[in-house]
């Protein structure tokens, strides 16, 4: 029975990586970054989750972030981050979130993680038994000079709801 369980788990796991990527793409659509030159790529850094990296790379092949092309980079070491507009940190790399956050400071870089207890991130993706939800921290995002759509806030959970 476990073999079907394992194969099935892997299938669900693959699908969830794709859904996470679609969520991230939706965040990009509903958050406004400070204006830059349109030929400058929108830079996404993925740390620790190859599945999500592969899924979001496929999205980047056909979609834009506003008017900007999307570039996706996978890093093995937190020191490899040179530039970014969005950083996604996998649960397995959660201990590096404080370090990444201090590197970002208040620059317009959205920090997303699927570690549900992360406190320093702008958005936490939360996989529950019946869905994929997210917690959003509007004040942190606004401090970075990023503009949030009201719809995104409405769809998100608050920190209090997540407890």
């Amino acid at each position: 029975m476990v073999i079907t369980f394992v194969v099935f788990t892997q299938f669900v796991y693959g699908q969830m990586s794709n859904y996470k990527s679609l969520y991230i793409y939706n965040f990009i659509k509903r958050i406004e970054w400070p204006a830059v030159q349109t030929d400058e790529a929108f830079h996404i850094v993925i740390y620790g989750d190859r599945g999500t990296y592969e899924s979001i790379s496929k999205i980047a092949d056909s979609k834009l972030a506003g008017d900007r092309p999307i570039e996706v980079e996978y890093i093995d070491d937190v020191e490899d981050i040179l530039t970014a507009d969005l950083i996604y940190v996998d649960f397995s790399k959660r201990k590096y979130i404080p370090k990444i956050n201090s590197w970002i400071k208040n620059r317009p870089i959205l920090l997303v993680s699927d570690y549900k207890n992360a406190k320093l991130t702008d958005i936490n993706l939360i996989e529950t038994s019946d869905g994929l939800e997210f917690v959003i921290r509007p004040e942190l995002i606004r401090d970075k000079n990023l503009k949030l759509s009201d719809m995104l806030v409405q769809l998100a959970k608050t920190d209090n709801e997540n407890r």
């Binding site: 029975m1 476990v2 079907t4 369980f5 099935f8 788990t9 669900v12 699908q15 859904y19 679609l22 969520y23 939706n26 509903r30 529950t128 038994s129 019946d130 869905g131 994929l132 939800e133 719809m151 995104l152 769809l155």
Partner: peptide, 26 residues
């Protein structure tokens, strides 16, 4: 995004049911 969230919810529920079926009723 709101449709996508609902879709994931539906997917997770059906996946879980399918998983239960495969593991507990092979």
């Amino acid at each position: 995004l709101e449709d996508l969230m609902a879709l994931v919810r539906r997917f997770k529920l059906s996946s879980l049911e399918e998983l239960y079926e495969k593991v507990l009723n092979p």
